[in-house]
């Protein structure tokens, strides 16, 4: 008995800590979720109403009816998916080459890639604006897809490179001796082994592209082309000075949902990707 009592106390502390951390990181999300389900009267009530006295979906219906919110989500999805795919398509072969071949200027290339990630993103903005104007890319998704791809590329290259480096070289040698052509080897041996890492980096790139705000705000002005973060920020109430808290909360929840689903869907793969070093031949 004494034994179990002694072990209960630390366990209790552990769960308390876990609970606190969960509360701390999930509270804002919970608050948004609750707000989105409250009636407008409850939202503006003083003193605060913490738990909705009456659940309502009016804000959700609102954002989809008063605005083409589905359209915004499709826009976001298109931009994020295309830039993520481009990122993986360009970054993975580059990473493979950097990991496997002994290039003369390898260190310089890697340092360059690393320095690009350190470059303050906001400083790119003015230059990009100029470029977008010169190429007439305003209100063209290329104005978003190209910068998103470029910004996510360094991370993709660095992560994929370290993944390829820990992949045993002998696997590729074995495949070549067995008669796999280079393309077959890459597609049939390497790609299946790389999927976890591809999914992990892909999700990171997707989240970054989905959430990006400043470029999307500036380069895309036509309403039907807007992405979710911009649309959420520009939600307006029925009256001029009314802040539409309920609609904002609902839009935030809807806008975050795809990311949550994505992560849950690939959760197993992500964990695999992070522990992929365990592949001992």
């Amino acid at each position: 008995m004494a034994n179990s009592a002694r072990s209960t106390a630390p366990r209790l502390g552990l769960w308390l800590a876990v609970g606190l951390i969960l509360l701390l990181s999930l509270a804002p999300i919970l608050w948004q979720l609750l707000t989105s389900l409250k009636t407008t009267a409850d939202i503006t009530a003083i003193p605060n109403v913490y738990f909705p006295r009456q659940l309502t979906l009016e804000h959700y219906i609102d954002i989809f009816q008063r605005q083409p919110f589905l359209r915004y989500m499709l826009n976001s999805a298109f931009v994020a998916v295309v830039s993520t795919l481009l990122c993986l398509l360009i970054g993975t072969p580059a990473a493979y080459v950097l990991a496997r071949l002994k290039l003369p200027g390898e260190q310089i290339i890697l340092t360059g890639v690393l320095i690009v990630t350190l470059f303050p993103y906001i400083l790119l903005f003015l230059g990009l604006l100029e470029l977008v104007r010169n190429f007439g890319l305003a209100n063209n998704y290329l104005a978003l897809i190209v910068p998103y791809t470029a910004i996510n590329l360094p991370l993709t290259i660095l992560v994929m490179r370290s993944f390829f480096q820990q992949l045993p070289h002998e696997l590729e040698d074995a495949a070549r001796v067995e008669g796999y052509s280079t393309a077959q080897m890459l597609l049939q041996i390497l790609l299946p082994l790389t999927t976890p890492a591809l999914v992990t980096t892909g999700i990171l790139a997707f989240i970054a592209a989905w959430n990006e705000f400043i470029f999307a705000l500036t380069f895309i002005t036509r309403d039907s082309m807007k992405t979710v973060p911009v649309a959420v920020a520009q939600l307006s109430g029925t009256a001029v000075f009314e802040v539409p808290y309920g609609a904002l909360a609902a839009a935030t929840v809807v806008g975050t949902l795809p990311l949550v689903l994505l992560v849950l869907l690939f959760q197993r793969r992500i964990v695999q990707g992070l522990t992929a070093g365990a592949v001992k031949g």
Partner: peptide, 13 residues
Amino acid sequence: IAMVFQSYALYPH
């Protein structure tokens, strides 16, 4: 040629 490697190099997937 058939080659057997020290780490066996079996395709894990």
